[in-house]
Amino acid sequence: MKKIGSIILGFIIGAFVTYYFCPRTVSEVKEAKIIKPSGVISIAEADSLNNNWTKFRKVAVDSAAKKQGRNKDNRWAAWSLDDIENYISYAKNQSDSLGYDMTGIRIYLGVYGKNAGQTKKNLTTMFMVPTGKKSVSQASSLIFQSRRDNIPIDPLNEGQGGDSSYP
């Protein structure tokens, strides 16, 4: 009888250990909390910003494009979600290896030159550059650094571009 009690106790302990230490199925695992980033604007505000760009910049930008032999210049750039996620992973990895803490991404406007080929010649483009600060040890007297500089990593360009307005 003493052996049966030990076996039952062993099964109970084993069941508790299995319950607490074995991985749960996907439905049992809580999903990651989704946080709305600061700076998200409404569709109406985006439409207003786009209309203001059209009102105040389109004529000047398109007239400059006409001097270069184009009717319209690019108004936007787009990358696939895979390209953006892959670039962020790449940039974080490169930042770490260069001794930087990557804290953001900066978007720049650029213009392809006259030697860029007929499809891109003198058109506006946009490219992403990782930003952050040089990693400092905790023993450093320069712990407080709020300025974010570009990290010397190859930027992401080659997004799709177009001249249509929002939306």
Rank of each mutant, 00 (worst) to 15 (best):
Q138H: 06
G132R: 08
S146N: 12
V40C: 04
S6H: 04
S6G: 03
S146A: 10
I143T: 09
N50P: 00
M128R: 05
I8C: 03
A46H: 08
G14F: 00
F56C: 00
S6F: 06
N52L: 14
F144S: 06
D62P: 10
V29Y: 06
T131I: 10
A64M: 10
I107T: 09
I34A: 13
D73C: 13
S165C: 00
G132L: 10
I7M: 07
R75K: 14
Q145D: 12
Q118A: 12
N150G: 06
M102R: 07
T119N: 15
A15S: 10
V17I: 11
S48E: 06
T18Q: 05
R106P: 02
T131K: 04
Y90N: 10
I35R: 07
G99Y: 10
R24F: 13
D163Q: 01
D82E: 14
L142C: 09
R70M: 02
E28K: 02
L9R: 08
D73M: 12
N122H: 01
I43H: 14
F16S: 09
S48Q: 07
G110V: 04
Q118D: 11
A78R: 08
E158W: 03
M102F: 07
T25P: 01
T54M: 13
E28H: 01
I84M: 15
I43N: 15
D62F: 04
N86S: 13
A139K: 15
A139P: 01
V29R: 13
I13C: 01
I35Y: 08
L98N: 03
I41D: 09
S38C: 00
Q94S: 14
Y87S: 11
K92P: 01
G99W: 11
S6T: 02
S80R: 15
V29K: 14
S89E: 11
S137N: 13
D62A: 08
D62W: 08
Y108M: 07
V61H: 07
A91L: 09
L156S: 03
N71R: 11
W79S: 03
Y20E: 01
S89P: 01
N71Y: 10
E31I: 00
Q94Y: 10
S97F: 05
G10D: 00
K66V: 14
S80P: 12
K33T: 15
I153F: 02
K134E: 11
V136C: 05
F127A: 01
N52H: 12
K36R: 14
